[in-house]
Amino acid sequence: MYKMKRLLFLLGTIGLLSLILVGCSNSNSDAGTSGGREKVSVAALNNYPPLIFKQDGKLTGFEYDLLQAIAEEENLELEFKEMKFDGFIPGLQSNQVDIASSLLIREERKEVVDFSDIFLNSGLVLAVANNSSIQSFEDLKGKTIVATQGSTTFEKAKELADQYGGKAKPLKETDALYLDVENGNADALVLNSPTVEYRLAVDGDNVKFRIVGEHMTVDEHAFAVKKGNKELADKINAGLKTVKENGEYNKIHEKWFGK
């Protein structure tokens, strides 16, 4: 009788241990996922309206909404990491982030990162204060042109400065570009057309800036991943294709840019 009780006790203990081990195993197998979703980190600016920016303490914007729609289609969970623009590509290369937003396709960038399919076309523009004497690019002689450090906007600012006898000045924050011109510390700024046009629309009757001349470039926006990460690039492209086909892309575009 004693041996029978001891045997039943040992069997019960073994069963309990098995349940605990199974629970631990299931818990470990969920690492790196959330409800079956693959976790992906995104390098993001917080001051680049209407593409991606912070409003009421939360990120929003065209790129933010588009990435969320792509993630929904591809079963991804996005974690946005706010970074300076010049840290985006190093962040991809060092595996700090998986995706970089707000990048324009450039041949030199193709050498160090892989791009998704194009999701938006735009161009760089020159903007000045409303009361500025600058009416054309020729008026940039002796003027200071600000643009975002480490971006194609600063390359264009340097090009304009060299061509017309001005000075190019890099700043890290998009908001700082407007403030620099508004405060008289710079005479003009170079930014992507959707950003400037959105600023003019938001300012309404109190608009403080105007665009000089035509678009200086024809630019293509895409998301970037670490060189060789074909799996993630393919998922972004598949999701982008789906949201374009089902009409979600058009809804997001109309929300931020109008019809």
Rank of each mutant, 00 (worst) to 15 (best):
148 T>R: 04
148 T>N: 04
148 T>C: 07
149 Q>G: 11
151 S>G: 08
152 T>P: 02
153 T>D: 03
153 T>N: 07
153 T>I: 00
154 F>S: 06
154 F>L: 08
155 E>L: 07
156 K>R: 11
156 K>H: 04
156 K>T: 06
157 A>Q: 09
158 K>H: 10
158 K>I: 05
158 K>S: 07
158 K>N: 07
159 E>P: 01
159 E>Y: 02
159 E>K: 00
160 L>R: 06
161 A>F: 14
161 A>K: 07
162 D>F: 07
162 D>W: 05
162 D>S: 14
163 Q>H: 06
163 Q>V: 01
164 Y>W: 11
165 G>R: 11
165 G>E: 13
166 G>N: 12
166 G>L: 10
166 G>C: 08
166 G>T: 10
166 G>S: 12
167 K>Q: 12
168 A>R: 09
169 K>E: 15
169 K>M: 14
169 K>W: 10
171 L>W: 09
171 L>E: 13
171 L>N: 12
171 L>P: 04
172 K>W: 09
172 K>V: 10
172 K>P: 07
172 K>C: 05
173 E>C: 06
173 E>N: 15
173 E>H: 10
174 T>V: 01
174 T>H: 03
175 D>P: 07
175 D>G: 05
175 D>C: 07
176 A>S: 14
176 A>F: 11
176 A>N: 12
177 L>H: 01
177 L>T: 02
177 L>G: 01
177 L>W: 10
178 Y>W: 15
178 Y>H: 06
178 Y>N: 13
178 Y>R: 08
178 Y>G: 13
179 L>Q: 14
179 L>N: 15
180 D>E: 15
180 D>M: 15
180 D>N: 15
181 V>N: 09
181 V>P: 11
181 V>A: 13
182 E>L: 15
184 G>I: 09
185 N>Q: 13
186 A>L: 10
186 A>R: 12
187 D>A: 12
188 A>K: 06
188 A>D: 03
188 A>G: 05
188 A>T: 09
189 L>W: 08
189 L>R: 03
189 L>H: 04
189 L>Q: 05
190 V>T: 00
191 L>V: 12
192 N>G: 09
192 N>H: 01
193 S>Y: 12
193 S>I: 00
194 P>Y: 12
194 P>E: 08
194 P>L: 00
195 T>K: 06
195 T>L: 00
195 T>Q: 08
196 V>Y: 04
197 E>Y: 09
197 E>A: 03
198 Y>E: 04
198 Y>P: 02
198 Y>D: 09
198 Y>M: 05
198 Y>I: 03
199 R>D: 00
199 R>Y: 04
200 L>M: 10
201 A>G: 07
